[in-house]
Amino acid sequence: MQHILVTGASRGLGLAIVQHLLAQGHLVIGCARSASDVSHPHYHHFEADVAIEEQVQALFIKIRKAFKYIDVLINNAGVARMNAFALTPFKNMRETMDVNYAGTFMCSQKAISLLRKSANPRIINMSTVAVPMNLQGEAAYAASKSAVESLTRVIAKELSTFNITCNAIGPSPIATDLISGVSEEKISRLVEQQSIQKMAKPEDVLNLVDFFMKPQSNMITGQIIYLGGIS
């Protein structure tokens, strides 16, 4: 049984990851701004906003006290607001950067001491195909995830001393809350640009989570794997 921390755990992909890891018999610590509906003896939920340093600090103090260590940190918490660059309010850009990039930065930093106590410590970040595809209407979102990708590569180098691997998953469009505001036509056009021209499923992401978590994946770090054949 591994100790796995999942941020953004209350819905969408985060919830799917939580349920998947619980089904595998792991102890899962979830965090989200809201409460969780998950009821499982191995699930422990904390309400925290990853964009607020004090809340992240308090979260990791509680985790340390309750669980001593973690094996895996999955930085899944994210926000996406599609809008034309010219029309994107500064406040929305700031919030996107704060949750997607700063949240990943702070959680990864605070997790180092807990991960060091694990035999196979992992950080798994979430990116998006919007980065390599430079998608219109996603200036703030794609830039925040581009920052996450750079962070992933730098962390991979710096934390290899502690045997911590750090990789990222770049999902192609999946029907989750995150893209609920995007038109079907836009999604179809996007999917047509993929090598594999179909919508991804949460299972495709879960497969990569499993892959990065495997002890045999200890030579894989600093990698960004996109779904759908995007490169």
Binding site: I61, R64, I112, S113, R116, E158, T161, F162
Partner: peptide, 21 residues
């Protein structure tokens, strides 16, 4: 630099054991 990081993390951990965050 990473040796320093390791030492500082150990010190932060020891302080946390005394409820000093």
């Amino acid at each position: 630099s990473m040796g320093l990081v390791a030492l500082l993390i150990d010190i932060e951990d020891m302080l946390q054991d005394q409820d000093i965050n």
